[in-house]
Design a protein around this nucleic acid. Structure first.
Lengths: 276, 276
DNA sequence: AATATATATTGTGAATATGACAATAAAAAT
DNA sequence: ATTTTTATTGTCATATTCACAATATATATT
C-alpha cells in the first residue's frame, strides 16, 4: 500500500525553529507565549504549517524571517529532526520538522496571530525545568541544545554567534558560554591561528573596554557552514562529557597503506563493482 | 494561522529506511525494485506511510521488521533527516522522514505489494551513479552514508555490524570497509583495550581460518548506542577528509578554572536564573 | 605623570597521544 | 619441521595538548 495518494492518513506537517543567540554570556532561545489553546499561556517554539509549494528549508527560513525580521545572511539554519508522536498535538496528527538556528544578535519582532509575545529565554532555565513549554517543545529544545553543543566542535560555526568581525575573546566567549567551559586564552589564540577557517583582519579593534586592544578576525572566504570532514577541535576544545558521569572511550590507532606508505585516503580505495 | 487543524494543506508522511550491512568487505544498502509507477523498475528505499497511531520511530521499526524479518535487538536504528521538496513525489505532496539502520547480517525477505524484489546493493555502486534510484532516494542514501561514516567515530557503533561476539579483526574490518582505510592492527588493538566500551570475553575464538586465533570481544554492558559525549577516535581513526580537498582546522587549547584548577566541567558552572 | 589593573598575545616545557613499524605468539598449510 | 598467516605486544620518534609564565598595550587610578 506504499505511496498510494488516495488513502493517506490525515497528517499536518509543520516546521518549528529553535533560534539560539547569546547575550551577556548567556545562551538564549527565542520562544513565543501562546495566546490560544491548547497550551494557552505556555511558551512554545515559533513555527507553522508548510505551504503547498514550499520546501522544508524554505518554510523554516520563512518562519525565521517572520519572527526576527532578519534575512538569510544573518543566520545559520539547519534541520534538527522530526517529531511525530501521535499525541503530541491534542487536536490532530501533526508531524513537525524541527530546525535550529544561530544568530549573532536578536531582538524579537512580532507576536503572531496566536502569540502574545516573543521573548529570549535562557537555555539554563529550560534545562532546569523552570519554564513550561507547550507540546513536546521541551524535548525539541533539549535536543537542539545538545546538537548545537555538538556542532560547535566544527570551527567556523561559533562565529555565527558573533558579528562579521570579532575578536578572539568574543569567539572564545561563545565556546565558554555554550559549553560551560573557561578555555585558556593563550591556547585558544594559537589554535585559531593554526586554523585555516579564520582570518586576521586588522591589528586593532576600534572599541575595547579595558586592557590591550584585540585584533579583529573574520571567517575565511570559502569556509562553508556545513564543513564536516574538517578536523575536530582537540579534546579540551570539544565539549566536556555529559553531565552525568559517562564512560569515556580512549581509542587510538592509525592507517597504513601496503608496506610503508602513508594512510589510505578514501579516494585511494578502489570501489567494488556494481552488480547491475 | 498556526496549528489550525481545519485547514492544513494535504500532505502525506512516510518513513524510508536506509538499511546498511557489510558482506565480504563491502558496504551494502537494502533496496527494493519498484513494480508500479512512478519509477517502475527503479530501485527505491523500503518505506511506507505512517499509521494513524504510530510514532515515527515505530513506523521505521515496523518497516525494518517487515523488510528483514528480524526484530529490534538485531539492529541499530536512528533517524536521519526529513525530505519534503514539493516535487519529490509526482503524485502529491509527500514528506518523508528518513531513517538509517545497521544490521550485522541480512538476507532480504519479502517483496512488498509494489516491490518486485529486494536486494543488497553496494554503496559504491550508488556513489558511482551506476544505480538509478527513485524519487530523491539517491540523495537520501548519500546523506545516510555520510552520516554513518560520521557516526562511526563513536566507538560502540561499529560493533553493530558484527555479531554479538567478534574478533578485533572483524571490528577493524568494519572501519576499513566503511571508511576505506586500512587501520593498523597493532594500534587498533591498543585503542580498543584503552576503550571502556569493549570487553574481552575469551582468549580464543572457536573458528578461525588461518593464523593465530583471535580473542573474542563484545560491547561492554551499559554502553548505549547513542553515546555522544564520548571521546572521539583519534585523527587517524576518524574518517579521512572528504574526497575533494577540504580546508582543515587545526585548533587546540584548554580550559582553566580560576587561577590554577583543572578545566571546568559543565556541571561546575552556575546557571543564570530564569526570568520567569 | 607614574603606577596599577586589565586584557591580548607570545613563549616554554612537561606530559601525553599518535603513528609507524619491529618483534613475538599461535595457529594452519606445506 | 618449516613456512605462512594472522594476532598481539612492544618500541620509539614525533606531534599534540595542556598548564602556565612572560610580555605587550591599552585604560583606570593615584
Amino acid at each position: 500500500m506504499r505511496y498510494d495518494p488516495s488513502e493517506f492518513p490525515p497528517v499536518a506537517v509543520t516546521v518549528d525553529v529553535v533560534i539560539f543567540t547569546i547575550h551577556k554570556q548567556t545562551l538564549l532561545v527565542l520562544l513565543i507565549e501562546r495566546g490560544v489553546p491548547p497550551f494557552k499561556g505556555s511558551w512554545a517554539l515559533p513555527g507553522g504549517f508548510i505551504k503547498p509549494d514550499e520546501d522544508l528549508d524554505a518554510a523554516a527560513a520563512r518562519e525565521l524571517a517572520e519572527e526576527t525580521g532578519l534575512s538569510t545572511d544573518d543566520w545559520h539554519l539547519e534541520q534538527l529532526a522530526s517529531y511525530g508522536s501521535p499525541g503530541r498535538d491534542p487536536r490532530m496528527r501533526v508531524v513537525t520538522v524541527a530546525y535550529w538556528a544561530i544568530m549573532a544578535s536578536l531582538q524579537p519582532v512580532r507576536g503572531g496571530s496566536d502569540a502574545v509575545r516573543a521573548e529570549l529565554i535562557p537555555v539554563s532555565a529550560i534545562e532546569a525545568g523552570a519554564v513550561q513549554l507547550a507540546f513536546d517543545h521541551d524535548k525539541i529544545v533539549r535536543d537542539a541544545v545538545e546538537h548545537v553543543r555538538q556542532r560547535l566542535e566544527y570551527a567556523p560555526l561559533a562565529a555565527k554567534f558573533c558579528p562579521p568581525e570579532f575578536t578572539l575573546s568574543q569567539l572564545r566567549e561563545v565556546y565558554d558560554t555554550v559549553w560551560g567551559t573557561r578555555l585558556d586564552p593563550g591556547n585558544f589564540q594559537r589554535s585559531v591561528k593554526e586554523s585555516s577557517s579564520f582570518l586576521k583582519l586588522r591589528a586593532k579593534a576600534d572599541r575595547h573596554l579595558r586592557g590591550r586592544p584585540a585584533a579583529l578576525w573574520s571567517v575565511a572566504d570559502g569556509i562553508d557552514d556545513s564543513v564536516r570532514g574538517a578536523r575536530e577541535w582537540p579534546s579540551q576544545f570539544r565539549r566536556p562529557p555529559v553531565t552525568i558521569a559517562e564512560p569515556r572511550h580512549h581509542l587510538s590507532g592509525r592507517g597504513r597503506n601496503e608496506k610503508k606508505g602513508r594512510a589510505l585516503r578514501r579516494q585511494d580505495v578502489e570501489l567494488p563493482e556494481s552488480e547491475d
